[in-house]
Simulated assay, not measured.
Amino acid sequence: MVDSRTGGGAPTVLRMVLGKRLQHLRESAGVTYEQAGRALDVTHATIRRMEKAEVGLKVPYVEKLLRTYGVEEPDELEAFIALAREANQPGWWHRYRDVLPEWFSVFVSLESESQVIRAYEPHYVPGLLQTESYARAVLRAGMPHAPEGEIKRGVALRMERQSVLTRDEDPPLLWAVVDETVLRRQIGGTEVMREQIDHLLQVTERTNVALQVMPFSAGPHPAMYGPFHLFRFPIDELPDVVCSESLVGAVYLDQRDDVSTFLEALDRMSAQAVPVARTRAVLSALRKEF
């Protein structure tokens, strides 16, 4: 589980990769957490946190751990050190740290490096598919006392996040299931809703966007507890990661049994929801209601 509450900055995907590789090297070398900790003059808990990407990975620490684990070949050492330097660089979202809580920094990092993003959203249009006006209304509803400048920064962050879907190199597949409630609840008024549905009609023409609607008529389904996202990466060391959100933060899960539960729920919902091929017809019909 990725702990989004710890210090040291939100873990980037590269830091997670480096942590996994260090764990593999330690285990292959038969070195315990305690032995690795003694090599760095830190506690065994610090080694665990390094491997889980919960703390920054200082280059001298990484180099000493590599030698402790028997890595001596210069090219291999340099490749690890280069990865450590890159992993410690802040992501583009660091520019929004004034309006970006630590737990959501983790989310944006995972989102930015994903190959596949699957989601269930019972309340709002997913952030990657929102218009500026809709995003502003959503943020204002969630932060009724925030100054206007903070709302504007939040909207700007959300709009910049959306560039992941249109980047030139390997944009991820976004496959989302939304409740019918999402498209019927008026966020920002009829004008905003019309614009939002028009936008969904446009983005669902992209080959890397698959949107399904869970109609009221489908009855109960396996994920009626709340919204969540599942991230899959093009990197062998990284398992799928699930983000389950709450009002004050999020829990990130990467254990196989936990992730499998969410994946099964998504698969079952996708079978119950309106097929992707019919989504545009549903959107067009709902558009007329606004």
Rank of each mutant, 00 (worst) to 15 (best):
M1E: 07
V2A: 09
G7E: 12
G7N: 08
L14N: 05
L14C: 01
V17C: 06
H24C: 00
L25M: 02
S28H: 02
A39N: 01
D41Q: 15
A45C: 00
K52F: 03
V55Q: 12
Y61P: 00
D75P: 01
L77H: 13
L77D: 04
L77A: 07
A82D: 12
R85K: 13
A87W: 04
A87R: 05
Q89Y: 12
W93H: 06
H94A: 13
P101A: 05
F107H: 14
V108H: 08
E113S: 15
Q115E: 14
V116E: 12
R118P: 03
A119V: 00
P122W: 06
L129S: 07
S133Y: 01
S133D: 15
R136G: 07
A137Y: 00
G142F: 03
M143T: 06
E148Q: 13
R153Q: 15
R158W: 01
R158I: 01
R161L: 06
Q162R: 08
Q162M: 04
Q162C: 01
S163K: 14
V164S: 02
D170C: 00
V177C: 05
V178W: 09
D179P: 02
D179G: 13
E180Q: 11
T181A: 14
G189R: 10
G189T: 10
T190E: 15
V192A: 06
Q196W: 12
L201F: 12
Q202R: 15
T204K: 14
A210D: 14
L211Q: 14
L211P: 15
V213N: 11
F216E: 12
F216C: 08
A218Q: 03
A223W: 10
M224C: 03
M224V: 07
G226E: 12
G226Q: 13
F231C: 12
F233A: 06
P234M: 07
E237G: 01
D240C: 05
L253F: 07
D257M: 09
V259T: 06
F262W: 05
S270P: 04
S270Y: 10
A271T: 15
A273V: 05
P275V: 11
V276T: 14
L283C: 03
A285T: 13
K288Q: 15
E289I: 06
